[in-house]
Amino acid sequence: MDYFIHIAILICIYIILAVSLNLIIGFTGQLNIGHAAFYGIGAYAAALLALSGQPFWLGLLAAMFFAGLGGLLISVPCLRLRGDYLAIATLGFGEIIRALMKNWTSLTRGPLGLPGIPSIEIFGITFSQPWQFLIIAALIAVIVVFLIRRMIKAPFGRVLRSIREDEIASQSLGKKIINYKVIAVVIGAMFAGVAGSLYAHYISFIDPTTFTLQETILMLCMVVLGGLGSIRGSIIGAALLIIIPEPLRFLSLPSSAAAALRQMLYAIILILIMLYRPQGLLGERRYTRNSNAVKKKRGVASA
């Protein structure tokens, strides 16, 4: 039973990561492949505060703040870049953050990592059992998905999508595309920070090897599989890509081979989706009118 709860918790964490990455890549069109850095910043921020005896909510806020700050730091200088240049710049940013995690030993203990991160405690209740943790993780995932959905469906989200579709046309309509791009990256980073905080409290140990490029690739794969610009797609993508490689566990392979097989699976999914179904499993939904009132009125008028 604990095994299934474990899987469910991971799915919740990755839903947050995939949906927040989708906000940046799928909706705003900014190919960011340094998402694991924001995840890592959040995890370290939450872990360090928790280890110094601060409450969970403070660590969570700090995780959001510092991850968001990271988003700001990378997005402001990269504003003029797009497409492949942006991808490589964010990749570089991710690697610099990882070099910091490894080498800033006075803060992060370097490759030794941070062990003994306490479990979540809210209002004096400790959520140390896996099922208790699952409730928290699921709740937070639902909130994050809800918030991002709200943004996307609002005029704000429409501007983000217009930037993805055609920056120049968006600008010619008076949109301050710079502001929107920065906001999208910062918000996406903040939510990745939330996921990082959950991860740190759940696993109770973090080290730099968790927040690698491979981790970003996994998130990217979830987003691409589900469909760029589809929130439901990212949720399904996250669930599928956590569940599908699980049977590999029972093949009793050496751990490096199992990890390689998993990576290979992700790679094949990425390539096949791009070649044969670039819109992903679900594809983007069409945003039609939500007010039928107009339609009715028009019907009357034309009758």
Partner: peptide, 23 residues
């Protein structure tokens, strides 16, 4: 230069001013 993967209606609405587009 339209927004190809947005609906015709959305293309129109995004052109309008004062649409409460702030976060």
């Amino acid at each position: 230069r339209l927004f190809p993967k947005m609906t015709v209606l959305e293309n129109m609405m995004i052109a309008m001013r004062d649409q409460y587009e702030g976060l």
